[in-house]
Amino acid sequence: MKRTGTIITLLIIFTAAAVGIWYIYSKDLEDPEVYQTETASEQTIIKETVATGNIVPKEEINIKPNISGVIDKIHVEAGEFVEAGDLIAEIKVVPNINSLTSAKNSIAAQQTSVETARLAMENQKAIYDRQKTLFDKGVISANDFDLAQNNYNNAVQRYKQEQVALRGNQQNFDIIKTGTTSGLSEYANTNVRATVSGMVLDVPVKEGNQVIEANNFNEGTSIATIADVTKMIFEGKVDESEVGKIKEGLPLEITVGAYDNRKYEAILDYIAPKGVAENGAIQFSIKGTLKEIEKDSAFVRAGLSANASIILDKADSVLSVKEGLIQYDPETKQPYVEIAIGDQTFERRDVTLGLSDGIYVEIKDGISKEDKLKIWNPLKAPQGRGGYGG
């Protein structure tokens, strides 16, 4: 029995020793954790949200004709600069038969009125001449002579008025038929001129196209679109989750991909009060005015796609660290970092955070620029170290 107990005891001791040796060996094979450090740096942190949209002119003017007809000649092309008053196109009038007939009938009726007024004037002239002869001989009184003279003067005036009305009807007939009349060629409705200075963005009609004048029942045919391309705006949309973070007056940074991501400065000056449902989300329209673009700078074409970075907040040249270096206390949720105080020895240091852009975060208090901050992810030492390495 004694011998059996001794054997069992020896087996237990031997097994424990083997397990201990194996544990020490396996732990020695594991690479020790080595933590690197990093220092804080000065960064300009920008908190922003992005909206997609287009670059469009601040104002686009549609040039429309003052008379219906057919385009006879176009004097401009898209891309040309024009001044207010420059000739855009000429219109050949195609008269409306009903209007032309009505104008012709008005002339005929007015000619009758003129002839009637002429006969009445001549009659009053004859009466006036007789009364004047009698008055000179003292046969009639001055009152009778004055009455005859007054009737004659009125008849002359009426005749002149009827002649003026006839000329007006004749001019109206000419305008309906040709679009202009004698003495008014410089104001001819057949000449379509630019109302503003700027660039011609589009000429949607061609020579031979029929055009309609603007009236109460029709907005008219656009002959050309003119805009000042030095005054452009960004039109875009933001999601409802972002609209609460923005306000009028915030700076925008417009990026135009077509020009190698060239950037333009702008100011947010409009946020739509009402959203529109698009693809299951509510979108709000925004507008931002670009700073005036010099004519000799890169030409920004109307309608180009662009992205607008809306700068919500900005901190210039502040002490910052990478977001990944910040740890949070599991109970108090207080942010902290670990500062190196020796070789692979660290101590906790509470910090006060400021603005963050998702990569860097501002450190308002707690560390200095010289402190070495622990990087969480440890590095493993190379394999093959010690007496057990292969």
Rank of each mutant, 00 (worst) to 15 (best):
I71H: 04
D129F: 05
R167Q: 14
I359V: 15
E83G: 11
W376T: 09
A78P: 03
Y128I: 00
E213T: 11
I282H: 06
Y25G: 03
E219G: 06
Y159G: 02
T225G: 01
K287V: 04
I246A: 01
D202G: 03
K333F: 08
A308R: 08
L268R: 06
A381Q: 15
I271F: 01
E347M: 03
Y264W: 06
Q124H: 04
T15A: 15
N62K: 13
D129A: 14
A18R: 10
F14V: 14
I74K: 04
V93Q: 09
T116V: 05
M1D: 08
Q157C: 00
N96L: 09
G342W: 06
N377L: 13
E59S: 13
N218Y: 14
K263F: 02
D144P: 00
L11C: 15
D72F: 07
L11E: 08
R167M: 08
L312G: 04
L268K: 05
L201I: 09
P32N: 13
K2V: 12
G179D: 06
V318M: 02
Y360R: 04
K177L: 13
I367Q: 05
R158V: 03
P273W: 03
G249A: 10
K287S: 07
V50G: 03
I45S: 04
S356V: 03
K374L: 05
N189H: 11
D343Y: 12
A108G: 06
R167P: 01
R349I: 01
F14Y: 07
K177N: 15
A266T: 10
V196Y: 02
F299D: 10
I21V: 12
K291G: 07
E265Q: 10
